[in-house]
């Protein structure tokens, strides 16, 4: 949930509303916020499934250190979404191991 009004910070400076897709679904967020924040505000918790145990992972450190929140952004895997700014038209995909769901499923059939 977004915080509309904060007792100390007031309102948050947000950029333009931007459109992006997550696994093909249309989403909206604000320019300048992190991809992770936009997804979190939309209730998306799972950013990827791990390579070995195939377990879901999401935001953990949110400052670019732990690399748990990585996703495929515009075709690039392992992008740290917590420190990558959201931009209009971004194509974001849940990461499976280091690949897309399709590539992962094709390999693990």
């Amino acid at each position: 949930m977004r915080i509309a009004q904060h007792p100390i910070l007031g309102t948050y400076e947000k950029g333009q509303k931007v459109h992006f897709t997550l696994d093909g679904q249309d989403m909206v967020g604000y320019e300048g916020e992190s991809i992770a924040a936009a997804l979190h505000a939309a209730g998306v918790m799972t950013h990827r499934y791990t390579a070995k145990q195939h377990k879901p992972r999401g935001i953990f450190c949110a400052i670019g250190r732990c690399t748990d929140c990585v996703m495929i952004v515009d075709g690039q895997p392992n992008v740290r979404t917590c420190i990558t700014e959201l931009k209009e038209g971004m194509n974001i995909q849940t990461q499976y191991g280091v690949e897309t769901k399709e590539a992962w499923e094709a390999k693990n059939k």
Binding site: I3, H6, L9, S34, P56, I59, F60, A62, I63
Partner: peptide, 23 residues
């Protein structure tokens, strides 16, 4: 502890105080 929803305190601060999103 590896499940989504387990976060560091710094993550909580980044989300709510910088990004304006409730953790």
């Amino acid at each position: 502890w590896d499940k989504p929803g387990v976060i560091g305190a710094g993550a909580a601060q980044a989300l709510m105080n910088l990004q304006g999103v409730q953790p």
